[in-house]
Design a protein around this nucleic acid. Structure first.
Lengths: 168, 168
DNA sequence: TTAAACTTTCAGTAAATATTGAAAGTTCAG
DNA sequence: CTGAACTTTCAATATTTACTGAAAGTTTAA
């Protein structure tokens, strides 16, 4: 298996993983392609490598730019846009994690808080039980979220992980 | 807003969150319904509460039983199957996390290891760069995975989280 | 036994999601 | 300016995923 085949294998695995976790397959594959490219990549390169349409390539790039995990790169004397990936996993993974926390977890946490407020005055057995169910999920998520913030925010994440590996 | 409406709001939020994270909406909603039910729930109850078909209700229940986060409950003098949710979030969330790790993360990790082996002998600049890309993702995931195991496995997870909240 | 009560399966259908490709929009070299 | 090079948009289409409902399968009370 040569390098090109290995890269393709990586791109495929990455696309599949993305799908399973709610990231569009093409978007994941484009990130993978940029991650394994030594040179900046154009829309045409993507269309060829991944056999996708111009529209798909363009929208995937836009999405990744929005996430802030790829960058536009101007190449002198060329009118095309070129793109490169953020290669530092501690930068891009943190951005993805924080984006998803904000877009998907926080709205649910807001609902859970509303529910707690709606129900906290209900002193029936059923009301108290429902409150506990909601509160348990809220507290659990909040604890994990706090830990995630500590590991992912600031720039001591890697150190922290290595430390935890030793001490706990 | 009464208790029933609050419960419905919880069920809806839970279904939406599930969808965004690759869990079938009905499956998530059935878990939510069982979580907020004080009494064991039958297939017919689910069909009525969530307005879904018998097939859907049955398959969702089966899935949740497979995950090990709901249980069958026999009710004396009743031939129907009844179900109750595992209410301890430290039990059910860990099961979901470990199941997804095993089904979705580990296969990718296996591919990454294969790739590392395929490429490690390639001493071209491009080969070394690709190796580093793969190795970075592998190492990052492995570190987080190890931490997740420590927090989620054994039964000291909650204590550990509280401790970490204080010391880091 | 047997037939009513219940569960499971799965082909057909519906809904959600992703992709295409061509037209419209933008940019810029000459 | 202008038109070639490039990017963006989005209606139409394809693909994937989810759901339904009825038939087949299973269990059990009588």
């Amino acid at each position: 298996m040569n390098l090109e085949e290995s890269k393709q294998k990586f791109i495929d695995a990455w696309g599949a993983l993305g799908s399973e976790w709610g990231i569009n397959k093409s978007v994941a594959q484009v990130q993978a392609l940029l991650l394994v490219s030594t040179e900046p990549v154009s829309t045409d390169d993507i269309m060829e490598s991944l056999t996708v349409s111009r529209g798909n390539a363009n929208m995937s790039l836009r999405q990744l730019l929005d996430y802030g995990i790829i960058y536009k790169k101007v190449i002198a004397g060329d009118r095309k846009d070129y793109f490169v990936a953020e290669k530092d996993i501690w930068k891009w993974a943190v951005k993805i994690a924080m984006m998803r926390k904000q877009k998907e977890i926080e709205p649910v946490m807001a609902v859970l808080e509303e529910l707690k407020n709606e129900v906290k005055k209900d002193k029936t057995a059923e009301g108290k039980e429902f409150f506990k169910t909601v509160d348990d999920i809220y507290a659990f998520t909040d604890q994990l979220s706090t830990l995630a913030d500590k590991i992912f925010s600031s720039n001591r994440g890697e150190l922290l992980l290595k430390l935890l590996k030793i001490v706990i």
